[in-house]
């Protein structure tokens, strides 16, 4: 039997009502006690230390920390699989655009530490300092022998990070001036792997966070050939003398509330910032 338009309207209203009842009723989620942190490998040690100390003081809260790179963390923030994205570079406008489309929010940036992006050399390498131009030459493949830099007549073995890494992006933008890395750069999954490779390779060179430099030496870096070269110490980073320093960030989807806010506040507190210094980075407060 065919329905007349009036009955069809009634039929649709019934369906609409049923579907309305099926809508998720948990509109306002309860305050979370499980916080997830994902992103920068540079910040993994720092983030884990924060989580451990915080969970000791607050056993009712669980903070799960994973790495993967800044890009991975930001992607997880966009698709809702993490509460906090750690990033060793500022969020790109295209990444903010994705947050805007999905959450109607630009994302909230919190500067949690400062880092002197360090250049690692093997202890046995006689080279002590490099200028930004020389670093660019090494990583773009223009300089391939240590002899050209005052070292031994040996091939330079260049180690770097994969392109999901914030450190990779920062180095590319600020040292290579946006140019591409040479194909000979061996990409490794994490700063610890880069440090490990340089430790074992007399002719190796790598880059990464200051907190990872164990078993290798810091290369002093200067702005240009005529400038003084500086080590990535707290004083040099804070004064701006060290030419490749950067902030380390936490990104959130929206202004934090509840337990998330408490955690971020604690990280920025003297206690949280003391952890920054202990790990090897530099406090922002």
């Amino acid at each position: 039997m065919a329905l007349n338009p009036k009955n069809k309207g009634l039929e649709m209203k019934k369906i609409l009502l049923v579907l309305s009842l099926l809508l998720p009723i948990s509109m306002f989620a309860a305050d979370k006690t499980n916080l997830t942190v994902k992103g920068s490998d540079t910040m993994v040690i720092l983030a884990q230390r924060w989580a451990e100390i915080y969970m000791t003081a607050r056993p009712d809260v669980t903070v799960s920390v994973t790495g993967g790179g800044s890009g991975v963390g930001i992607a997880a923030l966009q698709n809702g699989t993490t509460d906090i994205a750690n990033s060793s570079r500022p969020m790109k406008s295209s990444e903010r655009e994705k947050l805007k489309q999905r959450y109607n929010s630009l994302g909230v940036e919190v500067k949690v530490a400062k880092d002197g992006l360090s250049v690692y050399l093997n202890d046995a390498n006689p080279v002590q300092e490099l200028s930004l131009d020389q670093l660019k030459g090494i990583y773009t493949g223009m300089i391939t022998n240590w002899k050209a830099l005052g070292g031994k007549d040996e091939k330079i073995i260049v180690y770097g990070r994969e392109n999901s890494s914030g450190t990779y992006v920062y180095f590319k933008d600020n040292v290579l001036g946006g140019e591409d890395f040479a194909p000979l750069v061996q990409t490794l999954p994490g700063t610890a792997a880069v440090v490990n490779a340089v430790t074992k390779d007399v002719n190796g060179i790598g880059y990464g966070g200051a907190a990872y430099a164990k078993g290798i030496k810091y290369c002093l870096v200067k702005k240009d050939a005529k400038s003084t070269a500086y080590e990535p110490t707290e004083a040099n980073v804070k004064s701006g003398d060290y030419p490749i320093s950067r902030y380390l960030y936490m990104y959130l989807r929206a202004r934090p509330t509840g337990e998330l806010q408490k955690y971020v506040d604690w990280i920025l507190s003297p206690e949280g910032q003391a952890v920054v210094a202990k790990v090897g980075y530099f406090p922002v407060r």
């Binding site: 306002f28 959450y103 109607n104 929010s105 630009l106 929206a254």
Partner: peptide, 12 residues
């Protein structure tokens, strides 16, 4: 126009 509404979420 986009704005972050505390607790509820963003609006556009």
């Amino acid at each position: 126009f986009y704005a972050d509404m505390p607790v509820i979420g963003g609006l556009s």
